[in-house]
Design a protein around this nucleic acid. Sequence first.
RNA 1: CGGAGUGUAGCGCAGUCUGGUAGCGCACCUGCUUCGGGAGCAGGGGGUCGGAGGUUCGAAUCCUCUCACUCCGACCA
Length: 475
Amino acid sequence: MEHWCRISEFRCRRLEFRPVFPKRGANLDEAGIPMRLSQYFMPILRDDPKEAEIVSHKLMLRTGMIRQEAAGSYSWLPMGYKVLRKIEQIVREEQNRAGAIEVLMPTIQPADLWRKSGRYDAYGKEMLRIKDRHDRDMLFGPTNEEMITDIFRQGVQSYKDMPRNLYHIQWKFRDEVRPRFGVMRGREFLMKDAYSFDISREAGQHSYNKMFVSYLRTFARMGLKAVPMRAETGPIGGDDSHEFLILAETGESGVFFDKDFFDMDWSAFDIDYDDVGAVAKVVQDFTSKYAATDEKHDAAEFEKRVPEGRRLSGRGIEVGHIFFFGTKYSEPLGCVVQGPDGKMVTVQSGSYGIGVSRLVGGIIEASHDDAGIIWPEPVAPFRIGLINLKAGDADTDAACNNIYKALEAKGIDVLYDDRDERAGAKFGTMDLIGLPWQVIIGPRGLKDGIAEVKNRKTGERSNVALDQIVSRFTA
RNA sequence: CGGAGUGUAGCGCAGUCUGGUAGCGCACCUGCUUCGGGAGCAGGGGGUCGGAGGUUCGAAUCCUCUCACUCCGACCA
């Protein structure tokens, strides 16, 4: 139990962590879709549904983000879907920045492809097998190595067309024996998976390193410090592998790591991805310190390398996993290209996953309090919750409408609680859904021309003149 | 897949042992009074009791079968 206390000290610090990157290119998909709560679909529950065991699952159900349709399978209701899409967009932007190219492969795959790789029989009952009307064997894809390798092989025959990294963000299905913890371990889940193809071992390592750095950036932008840990390559195999874990008491893995991770400069990886040395150095910095999941943990080594005062242990949620395969898959699948000397070369490959839907739950696990969710701004469903304390009062309505329209005009995501509810209910709801900022307008402040601005995370409140509200959020 | 449970109104539950045709809290609707941290009073709507079969004059309740979901274990992004 003792290590929990130690971890929780760091939880506070972790939550203060702020994304350090300028937003190059706004989230065009998601920019400012303001909404009046009286017209929204957000079925709030006052009580915890009994099937939910962990806090993120409870909160997602209570805030009407998701609805369970079957074991491990969920509908994403408007607010949950908005968060999911924001996370997805951050992942997409950082993949693109690292030079990966987006594709989209089908959810349903032909079994033949998997028979060729030998995994059709090997994959076991986790693979959902289906037959089409012609009685052909199909499957709902649990992953896409076979398909992407086939795509790459068909499209590339020469070293001149390399390196390439192709990724997609698509729903996967793994028929888990026992799904649990809501979207953290569903059967159907949204995943980003990328696949790199290189001509040499060294080039392949650089591709791996680029993904490593892009993962640090991706999670940092979501307000998370995801600690990279050397991982078992497991049944997927390969030469090199790291998992990225965020700390949470409900994590599925025990983790042991050096406190230094929290003191490192998490902004130092805003670098040129073509600079092989610089990329390698970041990876070096982040892999030189001790960090391991319980599978790989070596107590003796931990004690040898990390002074007692810096040893941290706790539990973690895996949000990303990267593998370098070498020729493990390309060789049996005959994925070869012609090199500059005319000889055929077996491609070096790697694969890189991020659990997009899992991150929604993971972020809540890492960022909440007794009152509800505390969204990090970059993934919040709305940036501001505007509270009308006296809906129906002409002056209050007018003031709120003005602010709402002004924020809307600036493209700011705002959820306007214009319901005819009591103040307490509105505060409770707003705290529960955890929007980063609350703008509170009532007759009391209105007399003096002010609104109250509250920060959900710190609880800090300040009075702001009505005509300063918009500039407060656009500066 | 082994073990343990649970299915009754949108959510949380009682009623089942001991059969007599369904109830409580929250939520929801109407009215009045309230109104800056989940109000009060009055009135009201909503349930094939997971499903099928059986026993019985009569089944939420007893019997048989079945489906779904949850938890513990093994497994996983």
